[in-house]
Design a protein around this nucleic acid. Structure first.
Length: 884
RNA sequence: GGACGUGUAGCUCAGCGGUAGAGCACCUCGUUGACAUCGAGGGGGUCACAGGUUCGAUCCCUGUCACGUCCA
């Protein structure tokens, strides 16, 4: 006997262990099985599972379990990302909190040891948590972006791109994070709108003939000014072009140049030019051959290129000092408050500086072309399709990708420098030495590049590097390209685009045929959840409280495409209850001897109720299959919910009770077999979304009735019921019974007929078929509607309460229980509703255009509706008249 | 400033040309041998607004307003 309810706490770990031990997580080795592969978006190795992961991985697991059951060689390849900046920051914070030396004082080797130790300590957390969610990943294939194989792939890609001229070293302005002391990519910069000021400075002309006023939001950068620009069309300044100004504080003579960049409408129309600290000024500087003076150091302090008094000052301290000095010099011409956007590092949160350094860049524009084409021609399909536009927009305007980071945790750049700065890019130090020896003609000491690669460089290789590339492994052959990538749209540029570019370039094929962008789970105010904002939710707590299945069902049901998800525990509770409902339906089956029957053929069932539920089951199976295959996960969840609760539990089980307790043993046997058969189908259909509860029921019903071929549900075959033809006659029959019971209950309830009252149900006006059906179902109608019998009667006795169901008039003689006013009100309400329907429909049919142009079946439908409404109204009106 | 998305019952959201739906919340009734993590019934909506297309618009088109996200 089943317990009263499912106990996730004890069942989940037990079942997960059984699955894993059974080998079900690894793809079948049957060569005839169609491959279906998914690579996990690798979570940060030292991270922990947040609700976004829970959603993302639930959907992947739904897909994988579904395809596995469909007989495919389903591979879900798990792994983790070393997450360069994020992990390094965590460890540095730990060091600081413990009062230890900072990483610079520790030195590279000691620091990395410390990071690896942290990885060893916390690296298992997230994968343990994925197991608790029920993720059926193939753990035997687990990878890590810094493992040996993936590191080799990274080096191979770096060297190859370099030799192809698609990756190069360049001195350019980059976004510099002074807190982390590293370059970051454009994507890692967050533009924040903040309050600031425009300071207007007067620069005196060298010849003493006056001054020119410039405005800036960053006064300290004037220390690096090397020109003032005015628009060539600006007549106010035409006579000044070519003259020089003496830069206050610094004393440097700088030219006034004519450049379109200066906007005559803005401020004074003249702009200061700091080529080393502003992206626009950099371009102006290049056009005019201006000197580029770097006045900052790695920490965002003023460098030795500035006057003594400023050296070593923090940039914001220097800002104040510059303003004060201009004021003292009487060269400050005004301060205007302004709201402007300032770039901030998305990790550190500090203001980033445009900074002139040597970095490695990938020629993204070239790599983007085949990646764009692959989405254009549908080799990779993005869903929801709206994201294609975002993808194209970004890819068609892509800038060189700065891939070097001044960090220590990551893939060290495989570039070695000779004493004269000549660079040797090779996959190993030995090869670099050989190349250097060939270059210099003698063994020459080399120094490896200190920098590491952007984390996204290695994750960009993920779909093929994890399968063994560059080796021609069996996995690579069988599972690449992967089938579906499930990820958040927030990393469409960081990750999806890069995988497309690198995948196309290195394998000649798309990395995945389909990308499904799942919704983003946001906090109550619609903000993206992130650790730095401190607004993350813990799915582990939710699993503890409600079970993994309830959380999974909730996330699946709420995963509507392109929607943000705001999670509520109420909703999870509701789906936990749904699981309990199914559990108890199984319990009902067990109690009533509804067990599998050897050789039961649903197509040959005779009872209408059984034929009806079998048809509904087949319809649901087909719809759920289509929904999951098409990534309409919310649709699948809602189909399952409605079918299991409303159709199977509320109606089928209830309608079957009299048969199960009845004397007709053949009918009873058929109902038992049918109930058990439907339940097995339900367990299979629900398994991808609620794997634990369904597996447990599968297990606990294993010994009941005929043996199953599959001991574990995870490995069972997905139901294909397409051969079962629906039975419209059975559906109509059961539909009438359901409607009669529902309507009758409504009447009883509205008129407050006591529950104990057991009047007969009178069939007053109905066609022969309807009368026969209602009579045949008398036992169940009696039980569900609490009536003594179903009796055909030529006319309703005085005081009987009439109601109309599918054109038939039924009546409940309950006059003694009710008060006339309540019944009059009920009838009046019914009549008004029917009159409204009739009016609306008649207006439609009176419109000749409608009759002429609308499809025949729509017109017919409306005619029927009108006739039915009219007939029902007349009967109820007559009843109302009798009461008065 | 551009792009995209969203405005449907008190809340969270489905529906997206042919009689407005679900869950939760709310109200009434109910421990009848699967289930109170439950059952039965009920109230509650000019489908943001304004035009247009159509026989017919919550659904398609245009505009407006509000909110959100991304990119400048």
């Amino acid at each position: 006997m089943l317990d009263k309810s499912f106990d996730p706490k004890t069942a989940e770990p037990r079942l997960y262990a059984r699955w894993e031990a059974s080998g079900a997580f690894s793809p079948t080795e049957d060569p005839s099985a169609e491959p279906f592969s998914v690579v996990i978006p690798p979570p940060n190795v030292t991270g922990s599972l947040h609700i976004g992961h829970a959603l993302n991985n639930t959907l992947q697991d739904v897909l994988i379990r579904f395809e596995r059951m469909r007989g495919k060689a389903a591979l879900w390849l798990p792994g983790t990302d070393h997450a360069g900046i994020a992990t390094q920051m965590v460890v540095e914070r730990q060091l600081a909190a413990e009062g230890n030396l900072g990483r610079r004082d520790m030195g590279r080797e000691a620091f990395l040891e410390r990071v690896w130790a942290w990885k060893a300590e916390s690296g298992g957390t997230i994968t343990r948590q994925l197991r608790r969610l029920g993720a059926s990943c193939d753990w035997s294939r687990e990878r890590f972006t810094l493992d040996e194989g993936l590191s080799a792939a990274v080096r191979k890609v770096f060297v190859t791109l370099h030799k192809q001229g698609l990756l190069y070293r360049d001195k350019r302005l980059v976004n510099w994070d002074p807190h982390l002391q590293t370059a970051i990519s454009d994507l890692e910069v967050e533009q924040r709108e903040v309050d600031g000021h425009f300071w207007r400075f007067a620069y005196p002309l060298e010849d003493g003939s006056g001054e020119i006023v410039v405005a800036t939001t960053r006064p300290e950068t004037m220390l690096g000014d090397t020109a003032v620009a005015v628009n060539p069309k600006d007549e106010r300044y035409a006579h000044l072009v070519g003259k020089q100004v003496r830069l206050p504080i610094v004393g440097r003579l700088i030219p006034i140049v004519a450049d379109d960049y200066a906007d005559p409408e803005k401020g004074s129309g003249a702009v200061k030019i700091t080529p080393a600290h502003d992206f626009n000024d950099f371009q102006v500087g290049k056009r005019h051959g201006l000197e580029m003076i770097n006045i900052l150091d790695d920490f965002g302090c003023i460098s030795d290129a500035a006057p003594d008094a400023y050296r070593g000052l923090d940039r914001f301290v220097a800002r104040k000092k510059v303003v004060a000095e201009f004021e003292a010099l009487e060269l400050l011409r005004g301060i205007d408050p302004t709201r402007h956007v300032v770039p901030h590092g998305d990790r550190s949160g500090v203001v980033v500086e445009p900074y002139l350094t040597d970095q490695w860049f990938v020629d993204a524009a070239t790599l983007a072309k085949p990646a764009i084409a692959a989405v254009e021609d549908g080799r990779t399909v993005l869903e929801p399709a709206a994201w294609s536009k975002t993808y194209f927009e970004w890819m068609r305007n892509i800038e060189p990708w700065c891939v070097s980071r001044q960090l220590w945790w990551g893939h060290r750049i495989p570039a070695w420098y000779g004493p004269d700065g000549t660079v040797f890019v090779e996959e190993s130090e030995a090869e670099a030495r050989a190349a250097a020896a060939a270059h210099y003609g003698t063994e020459t000491p080399l120094r490896q590049d200190d920098d590491v690669l952007d984390t996204w460089f290695s994750s960009g290789l993920w779909p093929f590097s994890t399968l063994g590339w560059p080796e021609e492994t069996a996995d690579l052959k069988r599972f690449y390209p992967t089938h579906t990538l499930v990820t958040g749209f927030d990393i469409i540029f960081y990750w999806v685009a890069r995988m497309m570019m690198l995948g196309m370039h290195f394998t000649g094929e798309v990395p995945f045929r389909r990308v499904f962008f799942n919704a983003l789970v946001r906090d109550a105010s619609g903000k993206k959840m992130s650790k730095s904002k401190g607004n993350v939710m813990d799915p582990l707590d939710l699993i503890d409280s409600y079970g993994a299945d309830a959380l999974r069902f909730t996330l699946t049901a709420m995963s509507g495409q392109g929607r943000d998800i705001k999670l509520s525990t109420q909703r999870i509770e509701g789906y936990r209850n749904f699981g309990t409902k199914l559990w108890n339906a199984s319990r009902f089956c067990q109690v009533n001897g509804c067990v599998r029957v050897e050789g039961f053929d649903p197509a040959s069932a005779k009872g209408a109720v059984n034929r009806w539920i079998i048809g509904e089951t087949a319809r649901t199976a087909a719809a759920v299959t289509e929904a999951i295959a098409g990534c309409s996960f919310d649709e699948a969840a809602s189909l399952l919910y409605r079918f299991i609760w409303n159709t199977y539990c509320d109606w089928y089980v209830e309608l079957s009770k009299p048969v199960l307790n009845g004397a007709d043993l053949d009918a009873q046997a058929e109902s038992r077999a049918t109930a058990a058969w439907v339940l097995d189908v339900i367990l299979k259909l629900l398994h991808p979304v609620m794997p634990f509860l369904t597996e447990e029921l599968w297990d606990q019903t294993a010994d009941l009735g005929a043996a199953r071929t599959e001991p574990l549900l995870i490995s069972a075959r997905w139901p294909d019921l397409s051969a079962l033809a629906p039975d419209p006659a059975a559906a109509a029959e059961v539909g009438l019974v359901i409607a009669a019971i529902a309507e009758g209950r409504s009447v009883r309830s509205e008129l407050n007929v006591p529950l104990g009252a057991r009047p007969p149900l009178l069939v007053v006006e109905a066609d022969a078929a309807q009368s026969a059906v209602l009579a045949a179902y008398a036992p169940v109608i009696g039980q569900m509607l609490r009536v003594s019998e179903v009796r055909v009667e030529a006319s309703a006795p005085t005081g009987a309460i009439p109601f109309v169901v599918q054109g038939a008039t039924l009546a409940l003689p309950v006059a003694e229980f009710i008060d006339l006013a309540a019944e009059k009100a009920r009838l009046a309400k019914e009549i008004a509703g029917l009159a409204a329907t009739a009016d609306q429909t008649r207006r439609k049919l009176d419109n000749p255009d409608f009759v002429a142009r609308a499809p025949e079946e729509v017109v017919e439908e409306n005619r029927e509706r009108l006739a039915e409404a009219e007939a029902a109204r007349e009967r109820l009106q007559a009843a109302l008249a009798r009461l008065s």
